[in-house]
Simulated assay, not measured.
Amino acid sequence: MHIQSSAVDDYLKTIYHHTEWQTAPVTPSQLASELGLAPSTVTEMVQKLAAQGLVSHRPYGPVSLTEAGRVRAAAVVRRHRLIETWLVREFDYAWDEVHDEAEVLEHTISDRLLEGVSARLGHPTRDPHGDPIPDASGAVVREPFVLLAEARIGHVGRVLRVSDRDPALLRALESAGVDVGHTVTVAGRDAVRVDGGATLELPAGAASAVWLTV
């Protein structure tokens, strides 16, 4: 049976994202939750992806990308993150506005235009949220990191990445100065000092949405 290419890409991208900033593999039930689909639908699709050699999966076990799946997923992620960067730099989009636009454009922009965008932007290696942009071969450069929620009190690190899952939280963190490139000192369970300033109380969920250098 023919599987729509965009559907395959969405599955592979979701699996790729799940293990990008932590090591636990994704389960079919987690995939179903992430994609907003019925578990039975996801199970059927995972079996088809496995038959194509894009994922590895045992019944009731986690799902992981094969090398072929990783390369294809990285290509989709590259498209998405380059488009987000392009929208922010060239069209004055805010960093909390670009995700949904990129979700649409990543399936329609040509490879030629994408590489033209990359060249115009100076071949960026990170998107506006700090996520690494894979190069044309699928390779990424990622610094050692720690989730803010898991960092010890007194830890000092540069903000590497802020999750783009919650636009309202993105706006709140930006207002507080907790955005990519700034230096944060962990002052408490939900409190930080930014660039050596006063202690700030973080909004709910923030500590689980920010990654720092170690």
Rank of each mutant, 00 (worst) to 15 (best):
Q30S: 11
I109R: 03
Y16D: 11
R81E: 15
G157W: 09
R126P: 03
V141G: 08
P167R: 08
G116K: 01
V46I: 14
R112F: 11
V63M: 03
A102D: 01
P25D: 00
L121C: 06
P62W: 00
S208A: 13
R142G: 00
Q22G: 10
T19E: 06
A119G: 01
E150L: 10
S163H: 08
G197I: 05
D135F: 08
A187P: 02
W211L: 07
L37S: 13
R78A: 02
A75V: 04
A38W: 02
V77T: 10
A191T: 09
L173S: 02
V214I: 10
Y60S: 13
S40P: 04
E34T: 02
I153Q: 14
E150K: 14
D164V: 00
D92Q: 14
L82K: 02
D127S: 12
A191W: 04
G130I: 01
T185E: 13
Y60A: 13
R165E: 06
L87W: 00
V55R: 03
H2N: 11
P25Q: 07
L202R: 10
E44L: 15
Y93P: 09
R81D: 13
M45H: 14
D166Y: 08
D96I: 04
W211V: 01
L202D: 11
P134M: 05
A187F: 05
L31T: 02
W211M: 01
G197T: 08
A24L: 10
T185C: 03
R89M: 12
A187Y: 01
H80S: 12
A136M: 10
